[in-house]
Measured scan of single mutants.
Amino acid sequence: MAEAPPRRLGLGPPPGDAPRAELVALTAVQSEQGEAGGGGSPRRLGLLGSPLPPGAPLPGPGSGSGSACGQRSSAAHKRYRRLQNWVYNVLERPRGWAFVYHVFIFLLVFSCLVLSVLSTIQEHQELANECLLILEFVMIVVFGLEYIVRVWSAGCCCRYRGWQGRFRFARKPFCVIDFIVFVASVAVIAAGTQGNIFATSALRSMRFLQILRMVRMDRRGGTWKLLGSVVYAHSKELITAWYIGFLVLIFASFLVYLAEKDANSDFSSYADSLWWGTITLTTIGYGDKTPHTWLGRVLAAGFALLGISFFALPAGILGSGFALKVQEQHRQKHFEKRRMPAANLIQAAWRLYSTDMSRAYLTATWYYYDSILPSFRELALLFEHVQRARNGGLRPLEVRRAPVPDGAPSRYPPVATCHRPGSTSFCPGESSRMGIKDRIRMGSSQRRTGPSKQHLAPPTMPTSPSSEQVGEATSPTKVQKSWSFNDRTRFRASLRLKPRTSAEDAPSEEVA
């Protein structure tokens, strides 16, 4: 009796068929016929556990003709996506030579605008209408194809895939403007070719909807975003200037109206006075309405000098805001240009540092100066060695804690006790272990408590650290204090090793 083939788990290929790579489910599931010992083939499952149809090819690079078809379809799909992405970037994010197409579109729109203006002049109306009709045909074809291509290429973005995504893309403001202008152009052409009475009025009214094509030149909205950011950044200043200017306008108009309503027919109503105030304070000055009385002229002159300053403030605020924003954008561009080279330089330096163990090129690091100058660790070890030599091999803490019996001779020589300023008595072995921070803190506390006492003391002649007598400086308080830590004499004296002298005989010792 033939044995059933062993159940295979995992992703390994079956024996005897090495080139074939078959994806098997996580659990080997066989058909009921196979479990019962029949000759049925096992049921194939996909990666998600769903059964595959009987005629479906197995996924994998070596699955025969199905694999070749899959490779061809995958390559075609990649080319399709690449083309779609390229078209989308050309239309929505132009760079380099892609601006040539947008310059061509701008020339078409500008020519249409010029011809629309010439069509309103009686001398050039006939020729402009003929040229404009031909140009409209060209623009309908160009913009119609462009609109379709834009909607198709938007599928390269995830949020615009599918018919719902394309509809979302078509609802964008600039796409809506394109659609309105396209419909208006078709209506103008249809009305112009019919030759009816309505054609002339339709051409004159709907052609100027094509002015909206100038708005579509900035599809990404960079200028509007820049203007919005400047207004938002200086909103408080703008609101303040406009508010005060509006108050000056209504008060000036009302007072001039009261002064001129009886003697001047131009100011017969408050609305006429508001019109005069707006034209005057905005420095336009049509001259259609002028005050005639001396009181009205004085009020107009005073409020004009006051109001023009507030009406001119928004222009200066926006101008300075634009300058600052442009400078910030230039700085951001320079930062973006330098970020990648800086990151590459840091990575290269780290690779060199991690692979080169000698690091002989590091001549400006802490390790280099640590090898030249005595390190703080060596100074600490030197302090501890000196203290243990004086205390008979014991550390200062051990000397303080060691009990001394009554009447027993002390094995240590008597030492002079010292007192730290602002604290109780402490171990004499710690007097010379006072660090730089303690010395600086002690000097600052003395300056806070009594700076007036220092200038009363007789001035001391500054001497070099080499000429100081070591026996005289029994305490860190003898170090000359200065008002600034930048004094080199104080810094050098604080680094010197001060020996400890006994109370009975204080021989001067120098520590090399």
Rank of each mutant, 00 (worst) to 15 (best):
I140S: 12
F167L: 09
I308F: 12
W224C: 02
F267I: 02
S50G: 06
L135V: 05
V151I: 12
P5T: 07
L249I: 03
D266G: 06
H334R: 00
F182C: 11
D218A: 03
P314H: 02
S235R: 03
E328Q: 07
D266V: 00
I279S: 01
I121L: 09
K325Q: 03
V24E: 05
T120A: 05
R166G: 03
S111T: 05
F167S: 04
R43H: 15
E336A: 02
V117L: 07
I239S: 04
L295Q: 00
G316V: 01
V183L: 14
I239L: 04
D272Y: 00
C156W: 10
L313P: 00
N85Y: 15
L274F: 01
L247R: 01
Y88F: 08
L108R: 00
S269F: 00
R72C: 15
P173T: 04
A154S: 11
K172N: 15
V256I: 00
D218H: 02
A184D: 05
A263P: 00
I211N: 03
G39C: 06
G316A: 00
G66D: 12
P53L: 12
T293R: 00
H334Y: 11
L23V: 05
R219S: 05
N89K: 13
T27K: 09
R150G: 01
A343G: 08
V181A: 06
P13A: 08
R82P: 11
L47H: 08
I189S: 05
Y80D: 11
R79H: 12
I134M: 07
A56T: 11
Q71H: 08
L324M: 12
P94L: 00
L345I: 08
V90G: 15
R161Q: 14
S235I: 02
G49A: 04
A56P: 03
W86G: 05
I317L: 02
A304G: 07
L47I: 04
W294R: 03
E237G: 00
S50I: 11
L247P: 01
D17E: 07
G222V: 01
E92K: 01
E136A: 14
G62R: 08
M340R: 10
V138A: 06
S63F: 11
R93P: 01
A190D: 01
G228C: 10
Y80H: 05
G66C: 07
I180V: 08
V24A: 07
I317T: 04
F106S: 07
E260G: 01
K289E: 01
T278S: 03
D262A: 00
G287R: 01
G245V: 15
A343S: 08
V100I: 09
P94R: 00
R20P: 06
G39D: 05
V230L: 00
G64V: 08
F169Y: 09
F110Y: 08
V188I: 12
N264Y: 00
V103A: 07
A76E: 12
H292P: 00
V29M: 05
Q210P: 15
S229A: 13
F246I: 02
Y80C: 06
P173S: 07
K333T: 01
L115P: 06
V326D: 10
H330R: 10
T278R: 00
A184V: 07
G155R: 01
G60V: 04
T280I: 01
G49D: 04
A342V: 00
I250V: 08
R219C: 15
E146K: 01
V230A: 03
I148N: 03
G287V: 00
L135F: 15
A98D: 12
G16R: 04
R339K: 10
S320C: 01
I279M: 02
G195R: 04
R213H: 10
F322S: 00
D266H: 03
I197T: 07
R81S: 14
H334L: 01
W242G: 15
E130K: 03
I197F: 10
F179I: 01
A202S: 12
I239M: 05
G37R: 11
E136K: 03
L83R: 02
R338P: 00
A199D: 02
A190P: 02
F169V: 00
F179L: 09
R219G: 03
L281S: 00
P314T: 02
P61A: 05
S74A: 10
P57S: 15
F267V: 01
G319D: 02
F246S: 02
S309A: 15
W163L: 09
R219L: 15
H334N: 00
D288A: 01
Y286D: 00
P57H: 15
G228V: 13
G162E: 04
A128G: 10
T223N: 02
R171K: 08
S50C: 02
F104V: 14
A342S: 02
A241D: 05
T290K: 02
A190T: 09
A21S: 07
L133I: 07
Y257N: 02
E136D: 15
P15A: 15
P61L: 11
R331P: 02
L58H: 08
R216P: 03
I140F: 10
F99L: 10
L209P: 06
W86C: 14
C156S: 15
H124L: 08
V141E: 03
L313Q: 02
P57L: 14
D262G: 06
A28V: 09
S253A: 03
W275S: 00
F311I: 02
Q327K: 11
V186G: 02
C158Y: 15
W294L: 11
A25E: 08
P291Q: 01
K78M: 07
E328D: 08
G221A: 03
G39A: 05
P57R: 15
R44S: 04
P54L: 12
R216G: 11
Y88S: 02
P6R: 05
G195V: 05
G221V: 02
A154G: 02
A263V: 09
A312S: 10
W242S: 14
M1R: 02
N85T: 15
T282S: 03
E22D: 08
L108Q: 04
A76S: 07
V326L: 08
Q194E: 06
T278K: 01
I197N: 02
G144S: 07
L281W: 01
R150Q: 02
Y286F: 00
R297G: 01
I317F: 08
A259T: 03
V188A: 06
Q347P: 01
Y101F: 07
V117G: 12
A25S: 05
S41T: 08
P57T: 09
V298F: 09
N85I: 11
I134S: 04
L212M: 11
G10S: 12
R213G: 03
I121V: 07
I105R: 00
M217I: 11
V176F: 01
H102P: 05
Q210L: 14
L48Q: 10
S235G: 02
P94H: 02
R43P: 07
I239N: 02
K333N: 02
C69F: 08
S63P: 08
P14L: 13
G34A: 06
S268C: 01
K289Q: 02
A315S: 07
F251L: 09
G296V: 01
P54A: 05
R8S: 07
I148S: 09
Q84E: 07
G307V: 00
Q329K: 01
V151D: 00
A2D: 05
V186E: 00
K325M: 05
F208I: 14
L9R: 03
L107M: 06
R7H: 06
G321S: 00
S67A: 11
S205R: 02
W152G: 01
V183M: 04
H292N: 05
P51L: 11
E260Q: 01
A187S: 06
A190S: 03
L132P: 03
C131F: 14
Q125H: 05
L318I: 01
I308M: 03
I244L: 07
T290R: 02
G296S: 00
A2T: 04
D288G: 00
V151F: 09
K261E: 03
L107F: 04
V24G: 03
Q329R: 13
A202V: 04
G307A: 00
Q327R: 15
F182L: 06
I250T: 01
A56G: 04
V230E: 00
Q194R: 03
A18S: 09
A56S: 07
L52P: 06
D266A: 02
P94A: 02
G302V: 14
E260D: 01
T282R: 00
P61R: 06
A4S: 14
K225E: 10
T240A: 03
T200A: 06
E126G: 04
F254Y: 04
V186M: 08
A56V: 13
G302D: 00
T283S: 00
L238P: 01
F174C: 04
A184T: 05
Q327P: 03
C131W: 09
I211F: 03
F137V: 03
R20G: 14
Y101N: 00
E328A: 02
V186L: 07
A191T: 02
A154V: 14
G319C: 03
F137Y: 05
A304D: 00
L258R: 01
P51S: 13
L23R: 08
V24M: 04
F335Y: 02
G277R: 00
I279T: 02
A25P: 09
R7G: 04
L127F: 10
T193S: 04
K78R: 11
Q332L: 02
G165S: 00
R72S: 03
L118M: 12
S50T: 08
T120N: 07
A76V: 13
A170D: 01
T283N: 00
R81G: 13
K225N: 13
L135S: 07
T120S: 12
L255P: 01
